Amino acid sequence: MAFRLSNNLIGILNAITFLLSIPILAAGIWLGHRADGTECERYLSAPVIALGVFLLVVSLAGLFGACCRVTWLLWVYLLAMFALIVVLFCFTVFAFVVTNRGAGEAVSDRGYKEYKLGDYSNWLQKRVENTKNWNRIRSCLQDSKVCKKLQDKQETFTQFMSSDLSPIESGCCKPPTSCNFTYVSGTNWTTIPTSSTDPDCNNWNNNNLCYDCQSCKAGVVATLKKDWKRVAIVCIVFLVFIIIVYSVGCCAFRNNRRDNAYQGGWKQGGGYA
């Protein structure tokens, strides 16, 4: 029996996915084995490799299952696709739930905002307050030199006040405004006795900056919130695409079963002729 459209379409889609999985897998291996790689890159390599392997295995199962009409391979493919749909749906809902709280607070006469960890969801707060997690995050921030731009700028205090700082720059690279420290440069402040009750005033250090401050953790969470919302939107689009592919795969699976049943019936009838 001739190939049906659904089988051909599944074969083409999985051939493309297979080709895409190779650079993803190679990138993950490269990140994990870079001689000068940062802690962030090594930490990121494991999920990238896992994604590459998953796409490679699933695409091969779908490709051979559809093109060679191997029913059990298509069954494995559909099972993996269904699991992916469930995981993507749960992650998308979860991402919107944990990012529905929290926003930067405007500061009088400042172009930037400041961030409080308590404004965000409890789940995100617990993740960054975990000592092991935060040590890894802080190492990533220091390796990536997120404060270097402020260090290199030679701005006056007036120029600095009007700067549009990112959440991490605002939380990690300068002391909180309530400390009333004396500005020298973007990451250099003269500490003075302060009546502020903010504990971050005691954590500020011109050498280590505010990487151990609650405001730095809040800046990281604010950045995660923004990135997660973007990822969640991409997941919705990808989820719709996966559901369409899954539906086509179900048609290909049904075609395989019909073809196998037809060939089995034909052979049996031929035997009795």
Rank of each mutant, 00 (worst) to 15 (best):
N206T: 07
W123I: 14
G264M: 13
G118K: 09
I49P: 02
F64R: 03
Q151V: 08
L117Y: 05
L117N: 07
I16P: 05
S215F: 06
A261F: 14
T156H: 08
S21F: 02
G111D: 09
W228C: 05
L63E: 01
Q142S: 09
W134Q: 07
K145N: 08
W134D: 04
C250F: 11
K217N: 03
I244D: 00
Q142W: 06
Q159N: 12
W123K: 14
N8S: 06
N14C: 05
V146L: 04
A261I: 13
P47R: 07
L5D: 02
Y77G: 01
P199M: 07
D36E: 11
R138L: 13
G265M: 15
N7P: 07
A50K: 03
G249E: 03
T92L: 12
L55R: 00
F241W: 03
P193F: 14
V245C: 09
K116Y: 13
T197A: 15
R4L: 10
A2S: 14
E39P: 01
L74M: 15
E169Y: 08
N208V: 09
S59V: 03
T99W: 04
Y120M: 09
K132D: 09
H33P: 02
S247A: 09
D259V: 15
R136W: 11
N100H: 15
N205I: 12
F94M: 13
A35F: 02
L88G: 08
C179H: 04
C173E: 04
P176S: 07
L51A: 06
T158V: 13
D227R: 14
L78G: 02
L84Y: 05
S163N: 10
F82A: 15
P199D: 03
N133V: 10
L74T: 02
C67N: 05
G269W: 05
A46W: 02
I192S: 14
N180C: 08
S195F: 06
I16N: 06
G249Q: 04
K148E: 04
P199T: 03
D152P: 03
L20K: 01
L84N: 04
F157T: 10
V58Y: 00
I242V: 06
L56C: 13
L141I: 12
C216E: 03
T156Q: 08
N202M: 10
C250G: 09
L20W: 00
R42K: 15
N7Y: 07
Q151K: 14
C201A: 11
V76D: 04
G65C: 06
K113N: 13
E129T: 13
